[in-house]
Design a protein around this nucleic acid. Structure first.
Lengths: 336, 336
DNA sequence: GCCCTATTTTGCAACGTTGCAATGCTACGA
DNA sequence: TCGTAGCATTGCAACGTTGCAAAATAGGGC
């Protein structure tokens, strides 16, 4: 059925090995032979069998990107960039989705590595760092989460500094009752923890109190959660004049609730998000946000994984990607 | 380095073949033997080498999903569903992104099929249907686009009927100057053509004229294009009291422009989108849209591909998935 | 005890490719 | 004319797995 090297060899009247040499661009092939073999390859439509090649070479040139969900804009954009950059380096990317299930996460991390893929880039969700490093069966780079024992490579932005910057921006625009939406007490979510830390640090530095009621937990990080959290804040005992949401999606949900209830943004309540997803840029008002350098994250993760694959024993690294605070209408309110 | 059947066999004191039998749950293995072998498998942490397995079995149990871009919410949601449903059927999905480049599209369609994947589901963009069917080197199911010669399987909603329904809804709410945004004259985009057809049919049926200036072409289908198209409409010679956008992203861009210029939606201009992406549900006003049944699309495509793989010679099919018109604030304006 | 059948275990070969090393070949200089 | 160097080509083996069919073992009836 499928055309193999043998078929081409017979057709061209040479050995299998010579066809392999031509197919792989090996230097020492006579021009005439090369022409003949190439002709046979084209005629028969030969394409290498990747399974056989992998088996022989021991490399797949494929990596896996494990994310909680591709449907979420942040991960979609990140995945998109990762695929594009990986391709420039001759890698194929296999995208896997865990849906936030711990089991699937474990499976994706301990499963394919060293078998169908050369390495894994994972943005963990439900599984804690120490278990991750225990499970890992091959080259693994974590996004966001820092491995507890420092036994894994790791790429992230400085979440504390970024969150602090976001909160300080709210303080600087005169806000005094600043809420935070996005902690997830039920999960091993170090990212949320760090963002909370940055938020608290900014408030302390400004001499503002942090009523516990203004820190609102959520189940997931999507729009409906943000909408519900905002409702809870508005119905609560404390006044609120600003909200720092740990993701843009949460902020967009909050924006919706505010709008429904007739609050003006930012005059009554200012909003800051996190991630810089495209929806935030086009929302009305557009969303002030922390923009992690996603391309840099993807690039660093791929670099890091390449190094790790090249030398499994090398010391692990914590790589830090950049971010920017993008000030838009949801805090400054210069609507046209 | 990696543990193979041989290693386990030595450890358990049985033949390689017996280990294979245990690993694959073959029935005729003595309980005691099974226990011993399983013990060795667990101890050594054996995991099958998928390349070798593929080589031997001739199947990869992997399919490829080729989309223009994962970063776009519609494709992200569709990919997410496809991955989830495929997994229930024991398939792994490899997501590939073409960025709308014709070359990459050709490559993805003619490349991996029958080699690293068992089949391909492709949402074509730049390459025309007749070329697609010529290129295809194995089981291939198209999304959206109908293959010219009818030589390929195909899954889509009834774009003409859906667009007609969307436009008729605008007519029914009293609109008389209805624009369409989203044709792409520079591409082989059959979907856009069909949606235009539905739009025209609805207007004709209502006895409304279709000034050519009200049909606005776009380069891509993203928010910025929608924003620019809306600006062009507002600056144009014709009055506009409604816009049917061929994607929700376009509509969200248009919404932004309208809002910036002080138009009220839907009082001054009503908007209908297409795709039912999450952003549209939470926009303000929320977006009236055509919601294709994405889960059904994914399911039909996977069914169809499975059938095609099972019997490459079977007659091709055009499968039609459902859709619904979701009426929201951007046309009815019942803002709370 | 012996034969026949059913169960359990095994050896061999092959999937398509490439690393290794050996072979044949040509051309050049002595 | 011969030796040698360098290029072109080749055969063999192996990667880890599973299909096939044979072999070994156990079970049962006479």
């Amino acid at each position: 059925m499928a055309v193999s090297l043998r078929d081409v060899a017979v057709r061209a009247g040479v050995s299998v090995r010579t066809v392999s040499n031509v197919a792989n661009g090996f230097a020492h092939v006579a021009p005439e032979t090369r022409r003949r073999v190439q002709g046979a390859i084209d005629e028969l439509g030969y394409r290498p069998n990747s399974a056989a090649r992998q088996l022989r070479r021991g490399r797949t040139e494929t990596i896996s990107l494990v994310v909680p969900e591709i449907g979420s804009p942040y991960f979609a954009e990140l995945a998109s960039l990762t695929v594009r950059i990986a391709e420039e380096r001759g890698w194929t990317v296999h995208i896997d989705q865990t849906d936030g299930h711990a089991d699937r996460e474990r499976q994706m991390i301990s499963g394919p590595v060293g078998r169908s893929v050369d390495g894994v880039i994972c943005s963990p969700w439900a599984v804690g760092p120490e278990e991750l490093s225990r499970l890992s069966a091959g080259p693994l780079v974590l996004l966001g989460e820092r491995a507890a024992a420092g036994r894994l490579d790791h790429v992230a932005i400085d979440n504390v500094a970024a969150s602090r910057a976001a909160t300080e921006h709210l303080v600087a625009t005169g806000r005094r009752h600043i809420a935070a939406v996005g902690v997830q007490p039920h999960l091993h979510n170090e990212t949320a923890r760090l963002r909370l830390e940055g938020y608290r640090a900014a408030l302390s530095a400004a001499g503002l109190p942090v009523p516990e009621d203004l820190v609102v937990p959520v189940t997931t990080l999507h729009r409906p959660d943000g909408a519900a959290a905002m409702a809870r804040l508005l119905d609560g005992p404390h006044p609120v004049d600003a909200v720092f949401c740990f993701t843009d999606e949460l902020a967009l949900g909050a924006l919706r609730t505010l709008s429904e209830r007739g609050y003006r943004v930012p005059e009554d309540v200012a909003l800051v998000g996190f991630d810089d997803i495209e929806d935030g840029r086009f929302a009305r008002p557009s969303l002030t946000t922390i923009a992690p350098d996603k391309a840099q994250i993807a690039r660093l993760a791929l670099d890091c994984l390449a190094d790790r694959i090249a030398d499994p024993a090398r010391p692990d690294r914590d790589l830090v990607a950049g971010y920017r605070l993008l000030v838009r209408e949801s805090t400054t309110g210069d609507l046209p």
